[in-house]
Design a binder for these strands. Structure first.
Length: 656
RNA sequence: GGGGUUGUAGCUCAGUCGGUUAGAGUGCCAGCCUGUCACGCUGGAAGUCGCGGGUUCGAGCCCCGUCAGCCCCGCCA
């Protein structure tokens, strides 16, 4: 098809803006054909641009035949420039913002054609692999257009918020240094320095701290971070952080600049939240919700039921009660008919889920229309049942589920089931934005694999001032001045007050197994900086992708990233990662240089098991006679054909 | 690294107990159609049943392996 040129054509209006007020005006529009409805001598076409949709029309009686023919040739997603007169419609469409008007065409340019799309833009439920392969088309869809516009508005609002608070935006390096601790680094080989590597930043953590030493008391950056770890619905190998750091602050000061931002952001999507947000110590979060990022849209809490079973005939529970706190019986009670009506089959399915989470089974007690039913009913005397109901606050109908084990085990099981069942029973208030701060995280945790303590947050986090004495005596009990911002069960931010003196920093490195020498070589610049007048400082990083995901009301960060990777960390559109030319690898010293020295000639192979000096001598003599260049080698092989020893005898070498 | 799940027409899916030529809706192509807006009507083309191997007289269906998408565990300071 012969294409028309854009030429000096300029749009006069955005498609979505046209209203009855414009009736009679001649307008020029640009966009994509969403759909043609060809009724024979009357043709309609919906023209889409970034701002909306408007109907174009031409009919046989009034339109130029050439224009009508051109219009009929248009297919979905053709790119058009249209000129026409805004007119009131004969039959209006109340479902469309521009549904009262249509454009009676006086001119049409076909700027480009389009092949039939591999998937419809209108439908939900298209396979995600297909969408990712043709992401540039997927991004035409309304939902993604809205999500990315929301993301843009969000970053604008964030920048404005911090600019008003006098923050400075500073960029930090993408090519930086690999550091121990933390996630696996993405590495970039250096061409200039053979065998050496840059690392892409897991976060600009150290740079922002150094900027505090430099006197930028309020720093902000919206920056890309990289972690070479396995993916999840809310984790991509590259993601965006809103990174901030302030000097001369306490935890409350950081929270104080972030909370009003969250209030504003929530408002952009029509949610009202009020600051200050609840502060929940880590210990309570684990105790009540079995999670360090509890979803407070449901207020059901895990309860300790251990003492109730101190004299129980139910061995499983009583043995926990006898364990002096090593193991506990913990429970969740879901009130309501829906919970009480859970069938045997559903309970079995739930038990399977619990087993997946590491439970041995799923003891339950259910109070429904027919009274009590329980997997341990025979151990429940009437008095026990009354005590149990009272303890759990189970007045009416409902379902109690139990988990036995260490706190880590029971938290994991009940934390997961709490969310699953709350959602199933409609006890999760989907309309709410439930922000909170989880505070008082432990500073360190014991790592079995490495047989040492590792930092829970990162090794620059300040120990809680009250716990400084514990650092060497009981490191696991030492709290950190660290805080996570949680929204609806997602960690959307995390931060801490940092260590700002070289001595404490060195102490901490020591405790996590980084000796003085290693600390010097890996973090010398930080220790130096801390010794030249580093102010007390702290900050936080927000996960922009997760935040926008929650604002957009979607359940996957790929929906708010223009070009995301699959769960296997691949880009289906570009097919990255992919192989590269050998030449590139050589430049980066990842392959040996091209020029190599080869020795050519005959080779005598000898078994390692039974060599015979005399035979060998004869063979070598024969070989030497056979080869004009007198090039020979002696190679010893093991029984599997592996080379044990290669000894060159003589002969010239050749360069290739 | 482990577990679960999905893979059939461009797309979304159905496909019975293993049995004749693998279907539907939609999209696409052609014709008709003056008020459509998920236009309508008629007709047509369209398949490496993800890939490889096996069992069987016979495999979309059963078995083994493998690849890819998604979810989860480990991992993610």
């Amino acid at each position: 098809m012969k294409l028309d040129r854009l030429g000096d054509f300029q749009r006069t209006h955005r498609n979505g803006d046209l209203r009855l007020d414009h009736a009679g005006q001649t307008v020029r529009l640009l966009g994509w054909c969403r759909r043609v409805r060809n009724l024979g001598s009357l043709v309609f076409l919906d023209l889409r641009d970034r701002w909306g949709l408007v109907q174009l029309v031409a009919n046989e009686e009034t339109a130029d035949p050439e224009l009508l023919a051109k219009l009929k040739a248009v297919r979905s997603e053709f790119v058009l420039a249209a000129e026409g007169v805004v007119a009131e419609r004969e039959s209006k469409n109340p479902n469309m913002a521009t549904g009262d008007v249509e454009i009676r065409l006086t001119g049409l340019r076909i700027l480009n054609t389009a092949a039939p799309l591999p998937f419809p833009l209108e439908d939900e439920g298209v396979g995600e692999d297909l969408r990712l392969t043709h992401r540039f088309l997927d991004l035409r869809r309304d939902q993604l257009q809205r999500n990315l516009q929301l993301r843009s508005e969000t970053t604008n609002l964030i920048r404005n918020h911090f600019r008003e608070l006098d923050f400075v935006e500073i960029e930090t390096p993408i090519l930086t240094k690999s550091t121990p601790e933390g996630a696996r680094d993405y590495l970039v080989p250096s061409r200039v320095h053979p065998g050496e590597f840059f690392a892409l930043p897991q976060s600009p953590q150290l740079f922002k701290q150094l900027l505090q030493v430099s006197g930028f008391e309020r720093y902000i950056q919206i920056c890309r971070c990289f972690r070479d770890e396995d993916l999840r619905a809310d984790r991509q190998p590259e993601f965006t952080q809103v990174d901030l750091e302030m000097s001369f602050v306490r935890q409350e000061d950081i929270q104080g600049v972030v909370e009003p931002l969250m209030v504003k952001l929530a408002r952009t999507v029509g949610r009202e939240v009020s600051a200050p947000f609840p502060r929940l110590p880590f210990r309570d979060a684990m105790e009540w919700y079995g999670s360090d990022k509890p979803d407070l849209r449901c207020d059901i809490r895990i309860q300790d039921a251990t003492p109730l079973f101190a004299a129980s005939g139910f061995n499983l529970f009583r043995s926990a009660a006898d364990s002096q706190g090593q193991r506990r019986v913990r429970a969740l009670f879901f009130p309501g008919e829906m919970a009480a009506a859970l069938s045997r089959k559903q309970l079995d399915e739930l038990q399977e889920v619990a087993k997946q989470l590491g439970a041995g089974g799923l003891p339950y007690a259910k109070w429904g229309k027919d009274g009590l039913s329980s997997s341990f009913k025979k151990f429940l005397e009437p008095a026990d049942e009354v005590a149990l109901r009272q303890h759990l606050g189970a007045a009416g109908e409902g379902l109690a589920i139990f988990a036995v084990g260490t706190d880590a085990q029971t938290s994991r099981i009940l934390g997961d089931l709490r969310l699953r069942l709350a959602r199933q029973f409609g006890q999760l208030d989907e309309a709410r934005f439930a922000f909170l701060w989880v505070v008082d995280f432990p500073l360190l945790e014991w790592n079995e694999e490495h047989q040492r303590f590792v930092a829970c947050h990162h090794p620059f986090t300040s120990p809680h001032p009250d716990d400084l004495d514990l650092l060497e005596t009981d490191p696991g009990a030492c709290r950190a001045v660290a805080y996570d911002l949680v929204l609806n069960g997602f960690e959307v931010g995390g931060g801490s007050i940092r260590i700002h003196d070289a001595e404490t920093q060195s102490r901490l490195f020591q405790i996590i197994g980084i000796g003085a020498a290693e600390a010097r070589s890996k973090f010398g610049f930080l220790l130096d900086a801390l010794s030249y007048g580093a102010p007390p400082h702290g900050g936080l990083a927000l996960g922009l992708d997760r935040l926008v995901m929650l604002l957009a009301g979607v359940d996957n960060i790929r929906e708010v990233i223009a070009f995301p990777k699959t769960a296997q960390a691949r880009c289906l559109m570009t097919n990255a990662p992919g192989p590269v030319d050998e030449r590139q690898l050589r430049e980066l010293h990842l392959l040996p240089e091209t020029r190599q020295t080869y020795r050519v000639g005959a080779v005598f192979f000898e078994s390692a098991e039974g060599g015979n000096a005399e035979l060998r001598g004869q063979a070598l003599q024969q070989i030497s006679q056979l080869t004009p260049r007198q090039a020979q080698g002696l190679v010893t092989l093991d029984p599997h054909g592996q080379i044990l020893d290669a000894q060159s005898i003589s002969g010239p070498t050749f360069d290739f």
